[in-house]
Each structure stands twice: as structure tokens, then as C-alpha cells.
Nucleic acid binder design. Structure first.
Length: 270
DNA sequence: CCACGCTCCTGCGCGC
DNA sequence: TGCGCGCAGGAGCGTG
């Protein structure tokens, strides 16, 4: 499941070969992603040059001459650069063709999205209400504190809310809270200022570490060049219910919060 | 504004 | 060995 580090790594991987290339066509094999892939891309994208690739939250923003192709990888999506002649496989739903090379989206679970937008980012409903980037300057102890003080839900749910901070998925939510020494079920507004500062720092560092590792990822992720990206990262708590905490050896607890699997160490996290 | 549960989909792992 | 079942997950969306 691509989380933010995987999306960023994908961005870098596809930007290098594609930026400044010209799209020559689009092949849609299955438009039924989370929202239908707009059919007009097949004709409208041809001839447009790819000027840049940005990322906002987990959305990839491919800046073409006359608009932006928004791509979300959902839970199982991956993008690869392939020769135009490479045969598509079962879940390869769309190709953006750049002459002899294609950008190919594979997404078995089809939770992803490919959309077209020709206005400013803020004018798109998916991008309009996103909170700060966790790796950017707008995300810090003060901004997180302000956001958490208005929430009484579990802090884990709060940091997974994209209006509070973007890019924190289920895995890194548990990992960040472990590293910050905070129990995931704690009411968001009950965190002290120092706890909040620690949490902001650990969210950032957890994502940076994953980025440095090349993207921890679950089974479906591939690097843009097709090499498997799964460095079975040794998570502190995620998926480790009943196993010894890597710090104190107490058994890791698992429970559901907001109908999502959640893991924590009852000794290290208070 | 906030909280919560539902929903999309497929592959996997488990129990029998 | 095969089958059916439940679960996993991102995040938008509708409802209370």
C-alpha cells in the first residue's frame, strides 16, 4: 500500500525519464477505477508535453501543457516505465504513451484514480481541503497542537485525518505513535504540548526514515523501474501483536481503533 | 464543525 | 488439494 514515502519514491522514479517528454497517446484498458478514467484523455493528452511532476499528499500531479493529470495509487497501485512493446498484464489499466516508452498503471484492487484537472490545485475538490505536508515547514508542533486541540477522537484517527496532516496511513500512524511514546487511543485533545511536539517530530522522522529506506512497502508496491520495493522493514509494532516489543520485550498489543488494526506497546506508550 | 460507519476491490491466508 | 470465508487497506462520502 503506497504510503507517502512510496508515492514520493514513485514520483522521483518516473520524473527522471518522463519530464519534458511529449505524450503521444493514451491506452485505457479498464476505466473502472475509484472514479472512471475520463475517456477524453485518449485524444486530449496527445501532443501535450509533461512539464513536471509534483506530489500533494498521496496524489501525483503530472503537469502537462494544458492541465494536470492527477494519479492516486490507492492501496495496490504502482507505476512503471516500460517499452511501448511490453505486453500488458491482467491489472494494467492505463498507459500514458510517450513515443517508444509508456507509463503504465497497475492496480489490482482498483482503489486508485486517474483524473484530469485544468484549473489551480485548490479548485479541485480532492486537493482543496488537504492539511499540511508532514515533511514541509507548515507541519510542526504548533500547527499539530492547534489541530489536535479541536479533536476529541483517538489521536491515531486524528493523525490519519488528511485535514490535520496528509500522508499518514495506517502503518505509519502506529509506528509514529510508538516512536513518540503515545498510546493510539488517547483523546487527541488530551495530549500535552510536549507530547504533541514529540509526535510531530516522530511523524516527520518516521516518514523520512521510510523514504531513506527506499520506501517500506507492502506486497504490491514496485519501484518505477519494476524492481520489487518491498524491503520487509522491521516495524516496531505494526503487525506484531503478541510479539515482544523491540525496545522493552513486553508483548505488543493489537486492537481496532476506528475499525482499523492498531498496534502499540503498553509499556513504552503511555 | 466533528464523528462515525460504509463502501469500493482483489489477493492472501486461514480453517476445514 | 480445494474451497469458502474474513480480512486488509485509502479516503471520499453520506448521515447523525
Amino acid at each position: 500500500m503506497p504510503e507517502l514515502p512510496e508515492v514520493e519514491i514513485t514520483r522521483r522514479g518516473i520524473a527522471a525519464p518522463l519530464v519534458s517528454a511529449r505524450a503521444t497517446g493514451v491506452v485505457i484498458r479498464n476505466a473502472a477505477l475509484r472514479w472512471p478514467i475520463p475517456g477524453h484523455l485518449v485524444t486530449s493528452l496527445s501532443g501535450q508535453r509533461l512539464r513536471d511532476i509534483d506530489r500533494r499528499a498521496k496524489y501525483l500531479l503530472l503537469r502537462f501543457d494544458r492541465g494536470t493529470l492527477i494519479i492516486h495509487l490507492g492501496m495496490s497501485g504502482s507505476l512503471r516505465i516500460l517499452a511501448h512493446s511490453a505486453a500488458p498484464e491482467k491489472h494494467d489499466h492505463i498507459d500514458i504513451v510517450f513515443g517508444e516508452v509508456v507509463l503504465r498503471l497497475r492496480d489490482p484492487r482498483r482503489f486508485g484514480a486517474v483524473l484530469w484537472h485544468d484549473g489551480p490545485d485548490d479548485a479541485h475538490p480532492l486537493l482543496a481541503n488537504l492539511g499540511p505536508e508532514p515533511l514541509g515547514d507548515d507541519f510542526n508542533a504548533a500547527t499539530l497542537r492547534a489541530a489536535l486541540l479541536r479533536r476529541q477522537c483517538a489521536v491515531k484517527l486524528a493523525i490519519m485525518d488528511s485535514s490535520v496532516v496528509v500522508g499518514v496511513g495506517n502503518i505509519y500512524a502506529s509506528e509514529s505513535l510508538f516512536r513518540a511514546g503515545i498510546r493510539p487511543g488517547t483523546a487527541a485533545r488530551r495530549l500535552s504540548a510536549p507530547q504533541t511536539a514529540r509526535l510531530a517530530a516522530e511523524i516527520r522522522q518516521t516518514l523520512l526514515d521510510a523514504l531513506a529506506a527506499g520506501g517500506s512497502t507492502l506486497r504490491d508496491f514496485m519501484h518505477a523501474d519494476g524492481a520489487p520495493g518491498y524491503f520487509q522493514q522491521s516495524y516496531f509494532v505494526y503487525g506484531r501483536a503478541g510479539q515482544p516489543c523491540r525496545i522493552c520485550t513486553a508483548p505488543v498489543h493489537g486492537r481496532r481503533i476506528g475499525n482499523r488494526s492498531t498496534f502499540f506497546c503498553p509499556a513504552c506508550q503511555r
